[in-house]
Design a protein around this nucleic acid. Structure first.
Lengths: 191, 191
DNA sequence: AGTATCATGTAAGAGGTTACATGATTTT
DNA sequence: AAAATCATGTAACCTCTTACATGATACT
């Protein structure tokens, strides 16, 4: 039922696991969510979503059932299995590495969102703090690099590096803001 | 020799075209550049670079010659053809769209760098100004969205959106800084 | 002579994209 | 009855990844 150890689950698959953790749903519903919200960064195409669901099911991480009773058309509803929840939580609880930071904010944001809804606010705050440590150290390295090698680059190269620094700085500032947001009672957002 | 009209060239291929515009070089040299600089975001693996070069050559965008004279080992040196330069410039000179902004800063930075070295500083500044317009309008849309739908989201969702806004804001501020940088004389840089 | 490095590539496989196929069921 | 939409999927194609293969040359 489940493939022996486990392959590396691609980001789309992780997004599916996280969404199904919040409640069972069909491929069509998930796809609609992707096309209608900013989550569409993880592919909104049926040629990606349905095969991804099929793979997850073959590996035993999710389980589908055919709902033709109440529903009007044939729909296949998926829910997380225990194995699937374990795989999800293993991903969410993994330590934040330098690679995670370099790989980009897309994956970090996805993870952060699922951590909050799956493991709770305390874990989300811990995640943010770990993220701050990694980003801070990476920023220091970037600044060293630009000081050392920046002089021998074309202006556009320097500027591209400056942009990288600005981006990670934005990530750092955001994570600080987010931590303090969890310290306060929830209210209509302020930016 | 060249495939009739043109397929969509993936980002790695565009990076190769841009690099070869700055001077001919071999696949190995390009790969070394990728592994040693932050340009490694565009794949540093030979299994990607060599096939990409082969495709570009088959399409007539670059031309390789075997240099076994002076060099010690067999090396295949590539240079841009006229068709290749035209394709590169068409990409660089294309208007900045909303999609470009959404697709992400990786491609934007690559383009910006090649614009400066290929089309000159004046074009680079025009690119930055066009970018500012698109980012500004996209930021306005994001803020509208968060005002409208933000209340009905989990806190982590709101925060993820806030991060998106911060990121695009960083891009905007960077582009403003970059424009003013071009107004000032370049600080001395060692060759 | 043996190892490291240069330099190019290929093979297998995964996952994504676009486009199409297929029926059922609402809507007009 | 015709058209739109729901809901699932498949087919062909492309590019990337990892790992291996291949030879030539430089170093020790």
């Amino acid at each position: 039922m489940s493939s022996p150890p486990s392959r590396e689950i691609p980001l789309l698959g992780r997004a599916l696991l996280g969404l199904l953790q919040q409640g069972e749903s069909s491929g069509y519903d998930i796809r609609r969510l992707f096309t209608q919200t900013p989550m569409g960064t993880f592919s909104d195409s049926p040629g990606a979503i349905y095969p991804a669901l099929a793979r997850l099911e073959k590996e035993g991480l999710i389980q589908g059932r055919n709902e033709r009773s109440a529903g009007p058309r044939r729909r296949r509803i998926f829910r997380l299995t225990a194995t699937g929840r374990a795989a999800l939580e293993a991903w969410l609880a993994a330590p934040v590495t330098r690679d995670d930071v370099v790989r980009g904010s897309n994956e970090l944001m996805l993870r952060f969102g699922f951590i909050e809804t799956t493991l709770g606010e305390a874990e989300a705050v811990r995640f943010l703090q770990a993220l701050q440590r990694e980003v801070t150290s990476y920023l220091a390295e970037l600044r060293r690099y630009v000081d050392a090698a920046g002089g021998s680059m074309p202006r556009s190269g320097q500027l591209a590096l400056v942009f990288g620094i600005r981006s990670y700085d934005a990530l750092l500032q955001w994570s600080e803001q987010a931590v303090t947001a969890y310290g306060k009672p929830q209210k209509d957002r302020k930016e």
